[in-house]
Design a protein around this nucleic acid. Structure first.
Length: 289
DNA sequence: AGCCAGGCCCTCC
DNA sequence: GGAGGGCCTGGC
């Protein structure tokens, strides 16, 4: 057992269950009520829960001391959330979202797993996306601990390119199978270096991602926000569409079009537009208001 | 039964 | 350049 200390607010459950990542599961309630989560990342099976002191976790097969800095980075525990809140609370609805879910953080995921997961999100629902991602991992990923029925890591681009469209379709990915296979080939062939996009400017990363099959503006912005260090990214999906329409454009006689929302929001919220997006999305999707 | 899911792509105008 | 329709699949 190891511990990550946290400065500032953290809501681990909201962070892991807000539709950014799809491989975390609640496993068992702990005596004090804060749930354990099980996930696969960095080639490890990870169990984690939030306590008064921070994030408790165990790892397998690597020692916790090796994984600790990776998990800290993944959870962005060093992000100054308070400063971000101050920059965004001018907006009434973002402020309400922050008040409802203080400590909801934006993850820093593996770019390939994140991109591929969101390719699965097209015209899909969260539960089936999670199942698609798990099914791909079980079928084509590598074992992490050596046990018989353990979970596997998310497949590499090469593993999915080798799998091919037909076997992905057989898993139940539907029309997304073609996009996953084709994009995996492109990445495996090193035509696009996803990690390099962490250092690229926003527009350059957006242009590179939307060249990939099955990756449009929305999915590219998800990958940029959740894995490529682009906090100004602003994915516009049906939930954000409804939120902005109801909360920010109620008095317009002509409703704003979906494809004009991202530039509008980025101009309004600035370099942390993605955090505004996440709080609007989460509070809207949970249906509390 | 029909609609909707964290869209993208293609066609046609 | 933009509106409209099709698309795998599963749950309600």
């Amino acid at each position: 057992m190891a511990l990550l200390t946290v400065d500032g607010p953290l809501d681990l459950a909201a962070t892991l269950e807000s539709g950014q990542a799809f491989r975390w599961r609640r496993v068992e309630p702990s005596p004090d009520g804060s749930p354990w989560f099980e996930g696969v990342a960095f080639g490890n099976l990870i169990h984690a829960r939030q306590t008064r002191d921070g994030v408790e976790f165990t790892t397998s097969p690597d020692p916790e001391s090796d994984v600790a800095p990776l998990l800290r980075d993944y959870l962005r525990l060093d992000e100054d959330l308070t400063a971000i809140y101050q920059a965004l609370e001018f907006d009434e609805h973002v402020r309400q979202g922050i008040a409802l879910y203080p400590g909801l953080r934006i993850l820093r995921q593996d770019p390939w797993e994140c991109l591929a997961s969101f390719i699965c999100s097209a015209n899909n629902n969260v539960r089936r996306i999670a199942r698609n991602v798990d099914d791909m991992s079980a079928a084509f990923g590598s074992p992490v601990t050596g046990g018989a029925d353990e979970r596997r890591s998310f497949p590499t681009p090469t593993q999915l390119a080798d799998a091919g469209e037909a076997s992905l379709r057989a898993l139940g990915l539907g029309f997304r199978a073609k996009y996953i296979a084709a994009t995996a080939e492109r990445i495996a062939g090193a035509n696009t270096d996803l990690f390099a996009l962490r250092l690229a400017p926003y527009q350059e990363a957006l242009d590179a991602l939307t060249e990939l099959p099955g990756v449009g503006d929305k999915i590219a912005n998800c990958a940029m926000l959740f894995s490529l260090d682009k906090p100004e990214a602003f994915p516009v999906d049906v939930w954000i569409d409804r939120a902005l329409r109801d909360w920010h454009f109620t008095e317009q006689q002509k409703p704003i079009q979906r494809n004009r929302m991202r530039p509008w929001a980025q101009a309004r919220f600035g370099r942390y537009a993605g955090y505004a997006n996440q709080y609007l999305f989460h509070s809207r999707r949970l249906g509390r208001r």
